[in-house]
Design a binder for these strands. Structure first.
Lengths: 211, 211
DNA sequence: ACCTGAACACCGTTCAAGT
DNA sequence: ACCTGAACACCGTTCAAGT
């Protein structure tokens, strides 16, 4: 028996196996052994199906940050929880970050983050600004991690020797080893720490202003 | 007379007018008044054409930072120069950031940024890490600005009243006005300043270590 | 060297017909 | 209520035929 859930699950499976560009209504129908048009009894169109994919992946994020912990630690935990998407569903990541969800699954992470930033002592405007900085950083980092965006490694992994002209690009050539290697967790945590620490400085200033 | 340049220009025009999803070889050919297959005399395939689109847009970035200026100011200027893409070619932005270019146009911004970060006193490893943080932030910010990624405004602009349940999402509801309004330049500069300032602290530490 | 139409294997979605 | 095949208007790309 066909159902919305089975369709969404099949869509995620196809995306993870063959990529978000390869996914199609016909491909998903084949995966389920049904005719294409059967899908339309449970999902209005492809766009809504991709929304459902994003929603399902988002709702599986496990936020484990302790409400009693210091807010800086909670921000770190929330950011890392979000990054789990890139681990569990790398090829769905672009779909997740590019769908404009106004559902519970979409707004819950925002709600949590805003609450944490309010705890830090920011007013509404500041909290929203900080949230946007974090989201931008996280989205940018995840897209690099899943290969949507380049790492700027000057050579392709399938090519043995460096191709970049050292005369034209002295820096890129000199730092080729550092550009080639990209430990995604390490790079993510580095920037996260940078952001959390400046944010802590700002929070103190905000608290000082308020008295 | 058809040419690679004319094809790329037409592709950019179509993308800006109708969106990156709507662009097709057939659509571009129609735009130029030629048969689809004529394009293939100048461009090997659609993927290569999109690479050329990214390259053309990237090469139009005007880096105007003064080499004599303080490195923090140069970082700011370079980041803002990159953001101009979102202004001039909003609907090409996703194409630009998602193409893995190893050409001059693709590597020049990286080369400039690394040189600036070296001037700041970072070693190769640190410079690459800082570069990645900046790129992630910029990419994330640009995708928000051009509408690929959500702003998390709790209501749609075409709907007059807030739809979010204040009981479920007290923060999102309370800060709805701040979430609705998003001055992209202001938000971008806010996070940029945050990053530049922590980076300056790190640079001092790096300089201190070195002697 | 450059342009082209026909053809192939794909898309998403509508509609009318089945159960 | 749910499934479905035919049909329509699209894709990117190959190939053989033109100039």
């Amino acid at each position: 028996m066909l159902s919305r859930d089975r369709i969404v699950t099949a869509a995620i499976a196809v995306i993870e196996r063959e990529g978000a560009d390869a996914v199609s209504m016909r491909r998903i129908a084949a995966e389920l052994g049904v005719g294409v048009m059967s899908l339309y009894n449970h999902v209005p169109n492809k766009s809504a199906l991709l929304d459902a994919v994003a929603e399902t992946v988002l709702s599986q994020i496990e936020f484990t940050d302790d409400p009693a912990a210091h807010w800086t630690q909670r921000v770190r935990m929330q950011a890392r929880a979000f990054r789990q998407i890139a681990h569990h569903y790398p090829r769905c990541t672009m779909v997740v970050v590019s769908r404009q969800l106004r559902s519970t699954a979409g707004l819950l992470p925002v709600e949590r983050a805003l609450a944490t930033l309010r705890d830090a002592g920011f007013d509404g405007r500041e909290a929203v600004q900080m949230l946007r900085v974090f989201i931008a950083y996280i989205v940018g980092s995840l897209l690099r991690e899943v290969g949507v965006t380049p790492t700027f490694a000057p050579v392709r992994p399938d090519i043995a020797v460096a191709e970049v002209d050292p005369a034209l690009f002295p820096m890129v050539s000199a730092f080729a080893p550092d550009l080639m290697a990209c430990d995604h967790e390490e790079e993510f945590d580095f920037g996260l720490e940078l952001l959390v620490q400046t944010m802590a400085v700002r929070a103190e200033q905000a608290a000082g202003r308020e008295g």
